[in-house]
């Protein structure tokens, strides 16, 4: 008797659950979170599908792109990720720094703020480093410096062209003076790389500041800027508080930097792969396709 009663109850609860689920759907009309996107520049709301390569279809604003999205954008097909590491030094024993790194590794699935790789762009083999500002704002600590240095040394050994996509808040403050030393280490590797007459293309994306803007970012044989990228040594706030003046509206934009003579060309994301392909071909002396 009790058994059949329970059976009946189970059956009823199935219907109850079903009713509840239907009711929920009817009342809330939930829209999947990522169906629409609001552009931080023009504030227009558009469907996410209309954002090609994270570019606003309304105003053309280039939203940040993570390292893997960038590599998918530029490479012909498959590529190989290089120099991943488990290292996470904390030379100053900065409180909470180790935990923060662990948390970010979990969250972003990155090992640090840069991904180094090798692959083909327009059929030409090259080494590409892409910084990713989801990881500590892309700041440069020992691991970032070491990975980029290894990538430069590797490109030199293999006699391959090198492309670095920058985005960085600057030096990794939590690593103190060791962070500063990375600027020297990376530029030392670049000096050797350039002495071998190999091509280095620096690709500035939003935002690129501080230590990176005073080490490898400006040193490209060719420096490309992405539209809307902010690029400078000191941040707007620091400068404004130092000089106590209003800054020009376009201060430190890619256009501003191009007019000032520090960027060769501004390339829209839709032409990123194509432009890099042409530049690489011209340095190899072979025209493909």
């Amino acid at each position: 008797m009790e058994k059949s009663f329970k059976k009946q109850k189970d059956k009823l609860s199935i219907f109850k659950n079903l009713r509840q689920r239907n009711r929920k759907n009817k009342n809330t009309r939930e829209i999947p979170e990522d169906l629409f996107k609001k552009c931080p520049h023009c504030n227009e709301i558009q469907t996410s599908a209309s954002y090609k390569d994270n570019v606003c279809p309304n105003c053309g604003f280039h939203l940040p792109m993570n390292a893997y999205e960038r590599m998918d954008l530029i490479y012909d097909g498959r590529y190989k990720v290089l120099f991943t590491t488990k290292e996470a030094p904390n030379p100053l024993d900065f409180p909470g720094y180790g935990e923060k790194i662990d948390e970010l590794k979990q969250k972003t699935k990155l090992d640090e703020a840069v991904v180094c790789s090798i692959g083909h762009i327009g059929k030409i083999k090259c080494v590409v480093c892409v910084m990713d500002n989801r990881f500590m704002m892309g700041s440069m600590g020992s691991v970032v410096g070491e990975k980029i240095t290894k990538a430069i040394e590797f490109a030199l050994k293999k006699k391959l062209p090198l492309i670095i996509f920058t985005t960085s808040g600057g030096a990794r403050m939590q690593e103190g003076i060791f962070s500063l030393m990375q600027m020297a280490k990376v530029n030392g590797a670049l000096a050797r790389f350039k002495a071998a007459n190999l091509l280095y293309v620096s690709y500035i994306t939003h935002p690129t500041y501080g230590g990176v803007s005073a080490s490898f970012a400006p040193m490209g044989d060719i420096v490309i800027g992405e539209p809307f990228a902010m690029y400078g040594f000191a941040g707007r706030r620091v400068i404004a508080s130092t000089i106590k003046q209003k800054l020009p509206d376009d201060f430190q934009t890619t256009k501003y930097n191009m007019d000032a003579g520090f960027i060769d060309l501004i390339v829209e994301r839709s032409k990123c792969k194509q432009t890099l392909g042409k530049i690489l071909a011209m340095h190899q002396g072979v025209r493909h396709g």
Binding site: S213, A214, A217, P218, M219, G232, F233, A234, I239, F251, Q252, Y256, A260, G261, F262
Partner: peptide
């Protein structure tokens, strides 16, 4: 300083 490229 920025306009003349202090970083560079």
């Amino acid at each position: 300083s920025e306009q003349k490229g202090i970083g560079e």
